[in-house]
Design a protein around this nucleic acid. Sequence first.
DNA 1: CATCTAATTAGACCTATATTTAATCAGATC
DNA 2: GATCTGATTAAATATAGGTCTAATTAGATG
Lengths: 205, 205
Amino acid sequence: MQLDKLVTFHKALADPTRIRILAVLANGPLHGQALAGKMGVTAPTITHHMAKLREAGAVYERRDKNTIYFYLHEANMKRQSQAILDLLAKAKDESVDEFQDDISVAEQRRESMAQEALQVIRSFITPDGKLKQIPAQRKKKLFVFEHMVRGLERGRKYQEKEINEYIKTFHEDFATIRREFVMNQYMYRENGIYELNPEELWAKP
Amino acid sequence: MQLDKLVTFHKALADPTRIRILAVLANGPLHGQALAGKMGVTAPTITHHMAKLREAGAVYERRDKNTIYFYLHEANMKRQSQAILDLLAKAKDESVDEFQDDISVAEQRRESMAQEALQVIRSFITPDGKLKQIPAQRKKKLFVFEHMVRGLERGRKYQEKEINEYIKTFHEDFATIRREFVMNQYMYRENGIYELNPEELWAKP
DNA sequence: CATCTAATTAGACCTATATTTAATCAGATC
DNA sequence: GATCTGATTAAATATAGGTCTAATTAGATG
């Protein structure tokens, strides 16, 4: 898990003194005593901060006799600042569904969309029509929502409570799902009245 | 000062629970109760974390009846992850020299390099040859070092203590400056013996 | 080996923060 | 207006973290 690494990195930047140290090092390497002077803190405090920055990979150091010079690790800084964005992008599509993910990627590619949708629906919806869980992967989620929404009538206006009741026949968390319906443009809402959108507007898996 | 903002942002990401929350929200908005469930913590804990994430601009929220949906603020996440790199890049060239920076940029551009160097040397080196301070700006720093290094003999081999003594006639922090000499290729070091490099190798201001 | 210097460790102090349970608030529903 | 439900606040606890002084370590110098 890269979670710890991310946390360590951001912890390192979660202190004003340490950010100032990095800004100073951006101008070139410096040794501990000089840093202590510039920052207005004592040497042990610098030791403390440098340990955190080193652990996070934000700096590296070289020894010259008794003096240790700290260098800004620019490559690491770039890579690690980006890391949180990478994680979030990854989470968006790859987030592991908690179960039933047995269809391999290769197999999936071979299937037509309709067949793939069927697979997903079969794995997330029980024989008696209950949604076991809202899929975490966007694609699978949309397959399931599309399936659910096909149970509603085109052109009919629904009260919110009607929508809630309908959704509850699949899953207890109607609030989340109702909002997803609107967000993904399956439905249109105005003044608490819901209506099915034309199929062209639906979010595409 | 944007320092505080930077610290606030990184503090927000300096906790594993909060990063997991963001990863979940990357898949779409969720309400507090659902987050509490997914994270395995209580609702007040979610309230606590969401306050931090909101303050850092990492999420925003919308209310639907009694339920509050949290959304990942992707634009802010991108901007703020980049912010530390921007700061360091800025620090590198713009770092304010603590004094004597009265020559305007426009004026500097009009001067020839040699004239500019003279200006800098006059402002950083006292009449009796003492370096008041190591310039923070790279360009000015190199002007000063070049000036200092011209006092050494081409082709002669120096003991480290000789170099130290020479540098100390300018400034007490001989360790920092000696290392800068090597780093910027004014000098070459082997086994504690120092020698001036040919001028073509010197770092260019 | 005695001394100097830069860095680190130890220990203390105080503030910040992650989390919980219990109580309270605020919309929404009936 | 009584009741639900989801969110927040309050209060308590335990842990982490920033900073200091004093003591110690480890190279380098003489």
